[in-house]
Design a protein around this nucleic acid. Structure first.
Length: 258
DNA sequence: ATGGCTGAGCTACTCAGA
């Protein structure tokens, strides 16, 4: 089974690119973030034509997450945590892989910049609530996949110039510690697990020729509960969609699991 | 090496992203 996570930076502005990606890559499930639209304007019909069901937690203009899936996803929920600002940032569901019930958690973590504002506090609080809920969730179901745009650069090798980001909400030590805390509850950062020293990125700014210069960062992640690592066939960052015209600033990360 | 792109909502310009 191929599961893909992609911050598309507007599902409507990106629909042609996404459909082309689906046609090329044939994913079973897409975790989308930053769909930037309300449920009623989500292009479910376009995905249906390609054979996919849509499960949407939208919001006007900003944020928004969705699952797009060939098979049905059960037990869809949009209230995994109580979001203080009522932003649409998490959708969860359940699937069966090899008769194992797997909890799917699709997240779009707040950016948090600039750091001396309430935006940063919101990010910290959000992560605190999320981690607390995950800890609780592990007592119910030990098979969990968390994926999405974490807006966290886990380590120095995950950004082209870490010095520049030391006081940035994506790389501040305090934020990276939250990521470590989550991992320490029993998850693996799958890309890093299978690529111990690779410098690969999932995001490049639109401006200043960032893509051409490879000034990127790895902020989109697949976390799997440790008991699922043996089921992972591959984890790949697919840079092709970032090179297309009218691209998202993020590129898909692809998980093969059986 | 910051905000010089980009998108939404709206239809002039702000807000947001990272």
């Amino acid at each position: 089974m191929k599961i893909v996570s992609w911050n598309v930076n507007s599902v409507r502005a990106r629909i042609e690119n996404i459909l082309e990606y689906i046609n090329d890559s044939n994913p079973d499930i897409l975790f989308l973030q930053e769909i930037k639209t309300q449920n009623e304007n989500f292009p479910s019909e376009s995905f249906a034509k390609s054979g996919y069901n849509s499960y949407v937690f939208g919001q006007k203009s900003y944020n928004g997450v969705a699952f797009v899936s060939k098979s049905k996803i059960e037990n869809i929920k949009r209230d995994f945590i109580k979001d203080k600002l009522k932003q649409s940032r998490i959708i969860t569901g359940e699937i069966l892989i090899n008769k194992k019930k797997i909890k799917l958690i699709n997240i779009y973590v707040p950016n948090g910049n600039p750091v001396d504002t309430e935006k940063y506090e919101y990010k910290k609080d959000w992560l605190t609530s999320f981690i607390k809920k995950i800890k609780k969730e592990l007592t119910i179901n030990s098979n969990i996949i968390i994926s999405g745009d974490f807006n966290i650069i886990p380590e120095e090798i995950d950004v082209y110039d870490s010095k520049r980001y030391e006081d940035d909400a994506l790389y501040r030590l305090e934020i990276r510690k939250k990521f470590r805390e989550l991992i320490n509850y029993g998850f693996s950062d799958l890309f890093r697990h299978f690529n111990k020293s690779k410098h690969e990125y999932t995001f490049w700014d639109y401006f200043a020729g960032s893509w051409k210069k490879n000034y990127g960062m790895r902020i989109d992640h697949f976390l799997a509960s440790n008991n699922l690592i043996g089921n992972v066939k591959s984890i790949t960052i697919n840079k092709k969609p970032r090179s297309k015209t009218k691209p998202s600033d993020h590129t898909p990360i692809e998980l093969e699991i059986s």
